[in-house]
Amino acid sequence: MKCAQVKNKLIFYYYGDLDESQMRQIREHLEQCPTCRREYNKLALALDYANTEAQMSASGDLWNKINQRIAQTSSKKVKILWLRSVETIAVAAAIALAVFIGSLIGRVYIEQSYQVANDHEIYDDYENLIETFSNFNQTAYLVFDDN
């Protein structure tokens, strides 16, 4: 096999994609051609590293981090609701009013106002993800703009 032919097939040789006879011809060529061998070694170095990456593991505490975030998002939602949203002011006013009236006629209004607050759940982050995740039923299609 000539150098040009071998060079065209280096990556397929690396992955063992070729038939037996081609694999053998390239192996023999690489043994005696330093130019092609140099090219092959460079390619193999990068692809070996890809194999290393493909065997790496996520860190051991990944579950803890996920668990923490799950717990956080629920508490964060409530916190943001009370601190930031415009409705909060109205709710706060309603509660103040309820407390005031409540001091006169009872505590029912406080409970009702709190219910209003809980109805306004706010997702505060991962905005760019919402689109991807918002609807399971539309599934996640991979969009290609090329070949």
Binding site: L62, K65, S134
Partner: peptide, 17 residues
């Protein structure tokens, strides 16, 4: 790892649908 976290958190949050 951040990507993996995001994916699982969102799965948990949206599993109802």
């Amino acid at each position: 790892e951040d990507i993996v976290q995001d994916v699982f958190v969102k799965l948990w949050q949206n599993i109802d649908s």
